[in-house]
């Protein structure tokens, strides 16, 4: 097991390095000139050169990539200009390893940006995960157990309808009508636990969390129903029933265990994706999480932030994959890692 984990982690690190190199190359191959973008339109060629230097884009892309990787390994100081650092050391920003870079647009290290936005995305993803897993699995199992009934058809139909509504529609509807127009729920404003306690934190996360969870829940209802129904047709279930095992034991010990395995895979990947992928929900509710940070960084061609987020989000997916694979072995005794 340990050798397996080490092997997977090593492969993950290599994958991350390749990804950062690809992003660097794509960024500099883009026809958009990030220096011009930052320098503005009253930008003389001389001013452009100085802005290029200030942004750190005056070196070849490969050198910049090497500096980036080095920063992750041993940390970096900003600005890069040795002359300026020698003349005015008070201007230097230290960025300890693993240093993801320095955003000149946000005037802070990417590590600081991530530290500020990560808790918001994590909170949102956790609340959404709880809502969609609880709702999706419960309703999916209910639909499977009442297959063919009005309840089953109603649940399947409702999940289909919910699935058809895009997140931005549900989000805007909730915000505009439930929060603003009807005043049924306060407009969500992310409140850290340290500031408002768990109650306040959860209250403000429920609406965006539910919006984010809606589409996932609809999908999980249908998938859970399908997986449970499929499991119920297995020979070992029939055998268990024939042996007179109580229905509750058949359902929870035998049927659900098999049905859960593919759900675990999906949950792990969905959760990891949500860490930086809740862009629409974060934008609609003005939650300054990783997704919104990524959108804002793209708007202004903030390469350090983009790269830092790519590494972080890719790491989430890689780690989630490893955790899912380990969980497989825990849930399904037939699976052995090695």
């Amino acid at each position: 097991m340990l050798a397996y984990l080490v092997r997977r982690l090593f492969a993950g690190v290599i994958l991350l390095l390749v990804m950062t190199l690809v992003v660097f190359m794509l960024f500099f191959a883009s026809p958009v000139d990030p220096v011009q973008f930052s320098c503005g339109r009253n930008c003389s060629p001389e001013l452009k050169k100085q802005t290029e230097k200030a942004l750190g884009y005056d070196k070849p892309a490969v050198v910049q990539w090497k500096d980036f990787v080095q920063g992750i390994a041993v940390g970096r100081d900003y600005p890069d200009d040795p002359e300026l650092r020698a003349a005015a050391p008070e201007l230097v920003t230290e960025c300890n390893a693993p240093c993801f870079g320095y955003s000149t647009f946000n005037t802070k290290t990417v590590n600081e940006e991530i530290a500020e936005t990560f808790p918001i995305s994590l909170s949102l993803a956790i609340v959404a995960l709880i809502i969609w897993l609880t709702g999706g699995v419960l309703l999916g199992v209910t639909a499977a157990l009442t297959k063919g009934s009005i309840l089953d058809r109603g649940l399947v139909g409702a999940s289909l309808i919910l699935y058809a509504f895009p997140t931005f529609f549900i989000g805007l509807f909730a915000l505009k009508f439930i929060a603003i127009k009807w005043g049924l729920w306060d407009k969500p404003v992310y409140t850290p636990i340290a500031e408002g306690g768990i109650g306040e934190w959860l209250y403000h996360l429920l609406m965006p969390g539910a919006v984010l969870a809606a589409v996932f829940m609809a999908a999980y209802v249908r998938m859970t129903r399908a997986f449970v129904l499929e499991s119920m047709t297995e020979d070992y279930i029939r055998t268990a029933k024939a042996k007179g095992v109580r229905p509750r034991i058949v359902l929870f010990k035998h049927t659900m265990r098999a049905a859960l395995t593919p759900l675990v895979t999906m949950t792990g990947l969905d959760f990891a994706g949500l860490m930086g992928g809740a862009i629409i929900t974060e934008t609609v509710f003005n939650f300054n999480g990783l997704g919104k940070l990524a959108v804002d960084a793209n708007k202004v061609y903030d390469l350090p932030t983009i790269i830092g987020l790519v590494v972080l989000l890719a790491a989430f997916v890689i780690i989630a994959n490893i955790i899912v694979d380990v969980l497989y072995a825990v849930i399904d005794p037939r699976v052995r890692l090695g």
Partner: peptide, 15 residues
Amino acid sequence: ATDVITGGPSFYPLS
């Protein structure tokens, strides 16, 4: 200090 003070209308005093 165009390598530090970016984004403003420094174009005018500079020229």
